[in-house]
Every structure is written in structure tokens, then in C-alpha cells.
Simulated assay, not measured.
Amino acid sequence: MQPELEPLSPNISVFVSQTHRFNTDTILLAHFAAPKRGERCADFGTGCGAIPLIWLARYEPAQICGVEIQPDACELVRQSAEHCGVADRLRVLNLDLRQLPQSRPRDPWLENCDLISCNPPYKAQGTGIENPEQGKRMARHEETCTMEDVAHAAASCLRYGGRLCLCQRPERLTDIFTALCANGLEPKRLRFVQARVGKAPKLFLLQARKNGQPGGLLVEPPLILHNEDGTFTQEMLEIYGSYKEGH
């Protein structure tokens, strides 16, 4: 099946495939982690490159480096960058992020990053039902990297005070905090995501700072996805609205 082109804005689109796509969690993380103008950014496990391309559509980062272990996903990112004319600001590296802390010399696009995002596998190895398709299984289970691997790699690429933003399931919260703090990444901002008011959170969004002072965690009001009638809340309409402008 040929890759399909999914519009993200009037000028930016992303090529997706049956295996490498994006979903609501991707869009929420891209919004939560929004880079500042001129920042040097990276996206670990970038897949089809949706987060870097959403950032290029909405914000003005200086450059973004996607890191992805699967070659077919990397090719989608390259096609999108060329198609959108942003290859000078977006590049993808076909790398195993577990190698980053030891890699020398490192690619200059991964040195002293201001911001790194990661939508990691949600399931720990050996838990949940594993997808028989390798690409989807690697994206959903910690087959090729654990949260400890992500934290270690991010700490090696961030500048002092740089930010790591990620999303995960609430049941992994203590695992994430432990891995981050063990690698000098102090949790500073946390937001839970609920399907509706009164429902238990299904996701959390977290920002940590390299060499941040302990304490001072800001817990933001929960993000509610749907009204009681199933429609998007106003905040979700605003988040999706800027993404859907190109449709």
C-alpha cells in the first residue's frame, strides 16, 4: 500500500503508511511540548515525523532532528520534508536511541538540544497483547527501548536546563519519575488527560528539565477530551483546530 499524504496545515503535510501513522496522543504531545522560536529540537521515536512537522506548521523552531530505528519510517519523514520544502530544518536519523549516550562524535543536530519530545512505547516488555506486525509491536511495547533508555539518551543530548516532554499511561507514572530522576531530569510540569469529566485519566503529559532543582512540580488542570454528548470540548477544538486548518 502506497503512503498517503495527510495535511497538517496549508503548507505542511505528512506521509503516513499502514504501519506508521499518528493519533490524538501525538497531537496532544506536540501541543503540550510546543517549542519556542529558534529552539533546537529533537523527537525520539519519531515514526512518520508527525510531531516535527506539526511543530514546523505551528511554531518557528530553528531545527528538528527525528530519531527513528525503523528505516521505512525514516523514509516517510524524508519524503515529507522534501515535499514540504523543510529539509533544511528537519532531518531524520536512522538510529537506535540506546546508542546515543555512547556515540562520539555525535551528529551536531543532537548536541545541546533545547527540547526533546518522545511518545514512547506504552507497554512494558512482557505485558499486554503483542501485535504480530513488527513495526506496530515496536511502537507499542518496550521491545527496542525502555523508559530508562529514553531518559538516558535525552539527558545526553539536552543542554543544561533543556526540556524533555513525553506522554504515557498513568499506570507507568512512578516508573517514569524514577527513570527521569535517575538521569538528572527533574519533573516540572504534569497534566493528566481524561476522556470526560469524572473519568479516570487515560494519559498524562509530562515535562522534565535537565539539572532542574528538586521539587516545584506544577500539576495543571486535567485536559478533558469530550463533552457528555461525545463532542470535543472547546480546548480540544482549539488544539485540533490549528492542526485541521489545512483540511
Rank of each mutant, 00 (worst) to 15 (best):
E228T: 12
A33N: 04
S17G: 04
Q79A: 15
G246D: 03
I69Q: 10
H31G: 04
T127P: 02
L206V: 07
T144C: 12
A155L: 01
I69G: 03
P101K: 08
M147L: 13
I69F: 06
R163G: 04
L205P: 09
A208M: 06
L217T: 05
A195H: 14
G126L: 13
R104S: 14
T26S: 15
D149L: 03
S156E: 06
N227M: 08
Q134C: 08
T127M: 10
V150D: 01
C48F: 02
D96F: 13
L237Q: 15
K123D: 09
L29E: 05
A42S: 08
W55Q: 05
P221C: 09
G66K: 07
E220C: 08
L166D: 04
Q70N: 09
D25R: 13
E143W: 15
E130P: 03
E228S: 14
L110T: 06
R21H: 13
R91N: 14
P7L: 07
D72S: 10
K36R: 12
Y160T: 07
L166T: 07
I69P: 01
N23T: 11
R191C: 15
L95C: 11
R137A: 15
G184I: 02
T24V: 13
A154Y: 01
R104A: 14
R106K: 12
T19R: 13
E171Y: 06
E148F: 00
L90E: 04
G241R: 05
A81F: 09
K188E: 04
G38I: 02
L185R: 01
I27Q: 07
P35V: 02
A179R: 01
R169V: 13
A155V: 04
M236R: 04
A153G: 03
V197F: 08
V219W: 00
R40S: 09
N94R: 09
K210C: 06
K36S: 12
G230R: 12
R78W: 10
A200S: 14
M147D: 07
G49C: 05
W109S: 15
Q168D: 12
P121I: 11
A33D: 03
S9T: 03
C165F: 05
A200Q: 11
R21F: 10
Q213G: 00
S117K: 00
D114W: 02
G241I: 12
C181Y: 00
F204W: 06
Y59G: 06
L206S: 06
L93C: 04
E235W: 03
T19I: 08
D175L: 01
D72M: 08
L53A: 09
G215R: 03
I12F: 01
R159W: 02
L53I: 00
Q168Y: 15
R191I: 05
R40W: 04
C165N: 10
R140W: 15
F22Y: 14
K136P: 03
H141S: 15
Q63G: 06
P52C: 08
A34Y: 03
D149T: 01
A182K: 07
L93G: 03
D107G: 05
G38T: 05
Q134M: 14
M236D: 03
Q99L: 13
V14C: 10
R209L: 13
H83Y: 15
A87H: 02
A124L: 12
A81K: 11
L29I: 08
H31N: 11
G85N: 12
N211P: 01
P3M: 07
K123R: 15
I64N: 07
E228P: 01
D107I: 02
E82Q: 14
F177T: 07
R78D: 05
L110W: 09
R169C: 06
I54T: 08
L158H: 01
